[in-house]
Design a protein around this nucleic acid. Structure first.
Lengths: 219, 219
DNA sequence: TAGATTGTTAATCGATTAACAATC
DNA sequence: TAGATTGTTAATCGATTAACAATC
């Protein structure tokens, strides 16, 4: 553990770490032992200085001329994000997005495991989605008390979001990954991470529009 | 059109605009005509000054004491993002995530319409998902030439991403919303917006971990 | 050794927040 | 009028980038 060397990281740095992790694991699987920040920068489409800063935040140390030890750097990132031990998660709301996340392979690469899925629709309860049984929401609290669940993934419609969040909070969860547009009210010790797909779409559309306007000015 | 009043907007501002849009449309549907930045700030969990700055970027103008006209502000945001006319989009790759996006109701609220879906799996081609037929990828170019498609949504596995992107580029698309982890190589006039779910998960896990460490220090 | 690459310190850039006059 | 709320200008804060000595 090199926890004592961890720095306070910029939020954008934390968002980029999973990308480094993916690249490093790919390199590892090819048998590489070392990688330079220069190489990672090229793969990421950024400058080497950003890679050095980002990796430094996790506490890993490179060696001048040689670069970073892949294995040690993977461990440093996983330690830093709390991805070293598999994190168990619950998911509430098995509509189309919930089903998709239930089958999302990337989570396994990040040592996140969705161990149970919940819904309140009698037609869905008992059925199997991506190899996992859907339970009634009323089973959430008793199941959570047995397992040590830290993360709840919330994929219910907006009107049901606050109630679903309360089920999660009562089950002893530490953080909620909220895919609904609802602004959840939760106790201060619970972390809520809002995920909003339309923000990415807005950026894409604005960038397309900006480009079109530049072109029309030129003509 | 108040295009001439649009300022250069900060990227985080653009990401927040869809949230304002949602709130404003909700208020409009309730019959409200005016809203203050103070009220919006409370709903968003931020400071009023941020709301004023964000809305100012779209070119809308409020009136001291009264606030912002809801209808005009909705129009300003939609103009700003290019969401005033419905944007047609294609989606490639109808796995679980692709299917989820195909049925994602939020897009309709943002005037984005997925008009056709493509895959290369013979078992999927011809089937109907969320009321939309899945076409063979080879049909993409001819269909795109008829419609004026600006946006391609890419939800194929990593190994297929570059090829799918090339199909989209050849079809005359302006921007790609890339849900694969692949770093796409495209011509300079094509906008690529990478969407990475694991970055949000990383932030959530880090925040949970940081909170746990503060607590353990206290004890 | 020579040269590539690292970590550190400082400079720049961008975004948020504060202060306040203008105004409805 | 009095007071809430706006837009503007300036100050602060945070993140990225640059420069460079240290080092393998």
């Amino acid at each position: 553990m090199n926890q004592e060397k961890e720095k306070v990281a910029a939020l954008p740095t934390i968002r980029r770490l999973p990308v480094y992790l993916r690249l490093l694991k790919e390199l590892k699987s090819k048998g590489n032992l070392l990688v330079s920040g220069t190489y990672l920068a090229e793969k990421m489409g950024c400058e080497p200085i950003q890679v050095r800063k980002d990796l430094a935040a996790t506490g890993t140390e490179g060696r001048p001329r040689l670069g970073f030890e892949i294995e040690k750097t993977i461990e440093a990132i996983e330690d830093f994000l709390g991805w070293n031990n598999t994190q168990d998660a619950f998911i509430i709301g098995i509509g189309s997005l919930g089903s998709a996340l239930l089958g999302y392979k990337t989570f396994e690469h990040h040592n996140i495991s969705i161990v149970a899925a919940f819904d309140n629709d009698p037609e869905k309860i008992g059925s199997i989605v991506h190899g996992k049984e859907i339970f009634d929401i009323s089973k959430l609290a008793p199941l959570a008390s047995r397992m040590h669940i830290q993360i709840g993934i919330l994929t219910v419609p907006e009107f049901a979001a606050q109630m679903a969040a309360e089920y999660l909070v009562n089950s002893g969860i530490k953080g909620i990954w909220n895919f609904s547009p609802a602004n959840l009210a939760v106790p201060a010790d619970i972390v809520v991470q809002n995920e909003d797909l339309s923000s990415g779409l807005a950026v894409l559309c604005k960038r397309i529009k900006a480009k079109a306007e530049v072109n029309s000015e030129r003509c």
